[in-house]
Nucleic acid binder design. Structure first.
Lengths: 156, 156
DNA sequence: TTTTAACCAGACAGAATAGTCAAGATTTGG
DNA sequence: CCAAATCTTGACTATTCTGTCTGGTTAAAA
């Protein structure tokens, strides 16, 4: 159970774009330098973010990327959804059906509801933290996350 | 952010062994059939569980696997630790350092504390649910998990 | 209009993960 | 003692994930 490279680096690049907020778009080369990643790789990640509707770009000289939505409107959950497949998708019992056609645990699965709760909870908690929180300050982000976790826990 | 095949299938196999609890050990072939997995694969997973000290085995005819600890003593966290690498290990800033020698985000990382809290929280929550809970009943397991989440949230 | 800096797209190679295969070791039962 | 059933081990293959490379397209600037 760990986060993928795409999620980690993709989020970082998005934060760079959000932090920029200048008049001119932020070029890939700049982000790559800031993050210590290759230009090609950053390009790939930003493409994914663009197709997910989080950023937009302009081509040509003096081109680059800029936010397509306000950082305060983009939750961590949304970013992760864009950068990776849904955490616990409906195809779960297909993915883990082994050699059988259908999942062996149709009745009392025992495990599925556990992952289901965990993922639901996590997604809801991460939905309460935005990119704006992250770029504001580290302390604020932590506070916001903890508050969000507690709120979701109370809702269980 | 998703669970790996080893975690999923390994946990399932462990549950099979825990459910058995008969006098004679449970052979791999039995587990493989129950779970719809290949005998070879199940063997590999059980080997990992054995080396992690969760199960033990006897060879020869009428051999198989049995629990090395009481199901009530084994938390989900422990199982996941055995089946995969630690969720968020200390080598994090090495893993994601890009092309640079050291992580670019030594001062204000912004992301690291988020994952750190999430993982810590999750690990603690999963530490409050045992294999015994899982094999008891689905409803009990869900209740136990929710209670554990709430307890950990209160501690934040 | 030419140059140039940037985005875009798909193929590609390397690494990590998943899962299989085959030969060997150990114990039980006849 | 022998044979069958079972675990053990390591090598092997296949698939997915990472990250790179190459050749394009676009548009601003000189």
């Amino acid at each position: 159970m760990k986060i993928s490279s795409q999620e980690e680096y993709g989020l970082r690049c998005l934060i760079q774009v959000a932090r920029d907020a200048g008049e001119s778009p932020l070029p890939i080369s700049e982000i790559a330098m800031q993050e210590g990643l290759s230009v090609e790789y950053v390009g790939k990640l930003l493409m994914k973010l663009r197709k997910g509707g989080l950023v937009d770009s302009v081509r040509g000289k003096a081109g680059g990327y800029f936010m397509a939505q306000a950082p305060g409107e983009i939750s961590l959950k949304l970013v992760l959804d864009v950068l990776s497949e849904p955490i616990y998708d409906l195809a779960y019992c297909d993915r883990f059906s082994g050699t059988e056609e259908t999942c062996v645990h149709v009745e009392e699965c025992g495990i599925r509801p556990i992952w289901s709760i965990v993922n639901r909870f996590l997604a809801d908690a991460l939905d309460g933290v935005t990119i704006a929180d992250l770029i504001e300050s580290e302390v604020l982000a932590k506070k916001r996350l903890k508050a969000s976790i507690q709120e979701q826990a109370a809702r269980l």
